[in-house]
Design a binder for these strands. Sequence first.
DNA 1: TATGAATGAGATTTCATTCAT
DNA 2: AATGAATGAAATCTCATTCAT
Lengths: 209, 209, 209, 209
Amino acid sequence: MGVKERREREREQRKSQILDTARTLLLEKGLNATSINQIAKRSELSVGSIYFYFKDKEELFAALQVEGLELLYQTILRTVDQEALPEEKIRSIALAYLHFSEEHKNYFDIINYFLTSPKTIFPPDLKNKIDSHGNASILTLTSAIREGIEQNNFKPVDPRRQAVILWGVFQGMIQLKKLENTILADIGHRALYMEAVELFLDGLRIRNQ
Amino acid sequence: MGVKERREREREQRKSQILDTARTLLLEKGLNATSINQIAKRSELSVGSIYFYFKDKEELFAALQVEGLELLYQTILRTVDQEALPEEKIRSIALAYLHFSEEHKNYFDIINYFLTSPKTIFPPDLKNKIDSHGNASILTLTSAIREGIEQNNFKPVDPRRQAVILWGVFQGMIQLKKLENTILADIGHRALYMEAVELFLDGLRIRNQ
Amino acid sequence: MGVKERREREREQRKSQILDTARTLLLEKGLNATSINQIAKRSELSVGSIYFYFKDKEELFAALQVEGLELLYQTILRTVDQEALPEEKIRSIALAYLHFSEEHKNYFDIINYFLTSPKTIFPPDLKNKIDSHGNASILTLTSAIREGIEQNNFKPVDPRRQAVILWGVFQGMIQLKKLENTILADIGHRALYMEAVELFLDGLRIRNQ
Amino acid sequence: MGVKERREREREQRKSQILDTARTLLLEKGLNATSINQIAKRSELSVGSIYFYFKDKEELFAALQVEGLELLYQTILRTVDQEALPEEKIRSIALAYLHFSEEHKNYFDIINYFLTSPKTIFPPDLKNKIDSHGNASILTLTSAIREGIEQNNFKPVDPRRQAVILWGVFQGMIQLKKLENTILADIGHRALYMEAVELFLDGLRIRNQ
DNA sequence: TATGAATGAGATTTCATTCAT
DNA sequence: AATGAATGAAATCTCATTCAT
């Protein structure tokens, strides 16, 4: 039994060793320019070994995406003060996502890539894995909204729907960063981002008359 | 004299003939799987000829993007009833963008690609061309918002800022379509999209008490 | 008649305009990387025009070589003091060739290229033209040696043979410059070059006992 | 253990098999006209395989050059009679180089190519390898000269400097062979070559009065 | 004379993947 | 488990040259 466990452990180590390299290369050269051969050379493993641990290139990069989603989730968890007001929580999550997109640009890019790339249809099991990890972050939003409703601060909306919408807003707004030097030259990106968040909070809030 | 003009005309025709083929392939196989070789073969030209008309692959696809932005703009123009209320205009534009993303999926994908792809740094002149075309559509939003403010229906916000935010919302929400079969399985995408728009309008509107 | 002459003049101007561009590109990118298309673009002429003035790429570059040989000859003429002693003349010519190889590196490279490249067989007429231009420089050496013999300073060798040998020595020694950073790291190239020349002068000189 | 060694051996065999083909093509068509594609086809390997064994075209041809330098060195070693007088040794080496340039014209051309081509900057490690191989041949000259000095037949010159000069003379004189049919039409090339060598020896020799 | 569109072969290089060992 | 040689298709891009206008 000890043997089996050790094997399992080693297997996991190898896997993350490969993922480490893949991640680094991804950051350096982008998704398309990162090849299995390069990963093999850099990680001092053989090409064959990589194919032993990952069915194909797609599976490897999907694993990285799961990693990214997990990291995002952890970041959010760490950021959100459980004692804070629902509004504050939502703001924190928004900022956490923005920070994540800036500080873990590579992860953000890969998440983004699979979200926006026209083709790429994952096999169902992989897809589920990815979705459940993605869902986790959205759930934090859902909870915050539900909480706000329960405390009579938010209108009685469907928390999950609003959470998804907010998530879409985050996503769309962050992407605008690319236009910072042209269309947005005269508008600060971060201020704009937060303005969007406030707008939606405003719509959510129950106004006391 | 006539010769020069005819040549010029033929040149333009060839160019759009190439773009036609490229566009078709793009639709069929996606950006990454579309190669110059294929475009050449399909358009019954030599590879060299493609390179005679376009400096490189990037220039070709950028041209396609400009085309897409232009088409989007025209679609919006056609859709928006100049007589309608500002709110209605905004709804129309939102729907126009959604339709565009569905009916001209290939164009939407290519616009999206260049917006979200991590790398891709265009030469400045190309970038400006692209941005100015993109700006056109945002301007329609800006006008509608400004109109609403002038008619005392909207709060006195900065119309351009709100327009950009709204644009980001469109963009982010449309991308969620990809999750239709998983995270959004129980939520209709189109309804959600319009709900986001209404939310935004709600925030903008001056409430008469 | 005036018409004919003007035409002739214009023809020559066009030709050297093309050569100017070709030369510049040659200097920038080397022989192999310089294409007719580039020359056309840079010289603001059409590809067709270049082929009107030059039969093919080889002829164009051979013309450049003739130019180079001519320039070398002029340089030597300018350098050599007609009143100086034969020995001095030879030293001057040696230095002139070294300088030429340094200051007109592009010309030297192209001369060198055609001299050392394995294949390249020029059509006879072109070959003769090149040779006669090359000969001119060697003739200056021949004269100096003959003079030295007549003045009883040099042994009664065959002046032309010695001239050709000397020329070969120049050529071989100059090429060693490439090894300056490795094999010759500890040996100054120029000093070595002049040492070789002195060695041969030494062999040529009649020693008075 | 045996497996590893066999693999290593096979690897080396493949490598020289590729080099064989490359060499042959080089001889047939010249450096510039020899493409990786052709090498692959001729050696009945895939293009990819060539790139498995050699990083790029340059590395392949540099390997050929090293081969050539090595062969030259061996030729010299075989030619030079260790018992002979220093003068004789130098003559032998001179002749050996001339023969080498005639009989292994392809190797000579490739050595020559890298020596004279304007650009070509090798990565340092490759450069060192090449230089050390080139050095070997020069060292035989150095030894012969030093020997002559020790035997009081040669003037007390710096043996290494003289060796390098002599090498340059060989190189330059051999290149003149190209002019055999024009400038040198009336002068035998080989005789001229040896005359240059004698001239050099003459300068080196101590004259007994 | 001059143009410039067109060619098509060919260059170098990279890639994901397989499979015998 | 792990290796790494081999593949071969495909990708992007360049080039000298021709020829109808």
